[in-house]
Amino acid sequence: MDHYQAEDFAADESFLAYYLKSDPEAVAFWEHWIRTHPEKLDEVVAAESLLDLLTGRLPALEFEQEKDRLQAYIDETPTVQLPQRKPWLIAASILLVVSLGVGFWYVNRETRTKTPPTEWVHYSNPNGKKTKLTLSDGSTVILNAASTIHYPKAFVSNTREIRLEGEAYFSIHHDAQKPFLVRTGGLTTRVLGTEFNVSAYPQKSEISVALLKGKVQLEDTLHQQLQLLPGQQAVYQLARQQLRQTSFDSLAVSGWKDDYLVFRNADFKTIAEAMERTYGYQLILQHPTQPWQYTGTFHREDVRQVLETICFSKHLTYSIHQRTIYLRAEQ
């Protein structure tokens, strides 16, 4: 098959079965073959375009868009809208921190014995999807793509504790009696009522907490503490267990919740991760060039508009094959 041209692929029985997805064996075979023969990608893509033309089927990319449209429809009503409780409005600005860090589920033993078992809600977003959740105390959480949150159906203990993997933007209702704790691997954020963004994607080497309003206090497993004021950000290096304070650019940090995609001197890996989360496409750079320092802001643009802009500035061309985007140097 190494000598195959587009027309040979298209004429091949098993390739057609792969294209039509009518035979799982053929699908597995060709998916593997295509991955291991990147030099044939142009011919494969041409063969698939020929087949798109002749079978009268909807081209793959358009089909994916239609599928997204349907998924958006069925996901329109999230299953976790819980009744709002009246917020307590107690003014207080001093925040305390108690942190546990490693033990995610480590709830105060006293409270645990006194209260009935808490019912937990687990909510996950796939790539390309954001969800706004309302918690039982009226606090809202905007959960970013590729992220999971665990929270109790009702906050019955002395603290309001939730666990996060990935990224979320919190608007927490003030309640001095019941501090709100966000647990992410190795770092706990403790607040009474405030607005902040937590980014703790498992594939990243750091956790960051950016504060927009109010006050938060952070503590890691070594009991290092840091208090943030609005406009400040804490970055926690997981490997070195180092907690440091920086300033931040609010559009770059929390613009995602308003559908902004922002790159500031971003390397290829950062861009690829963001594109996968936002659009569900995997990016592969076929011939890595010099290190990237890409800066750009996008607002509600589709994946192709974003790609075209990036490719233009980096002198690259791209081709899309199913859910993978291949980038290579312009000829």
Partner: peptide
């Protein structure tokens, strides 16, 4: 294949 190039470039798989 020979004649389709024009069409192809207007189809969904394309190079920038």
């Amino acid at each position: 294949r020979k004649h389709v190039q024009v069409l192809m470039s207007l189809l969904l798989f394309f190079l920038v």
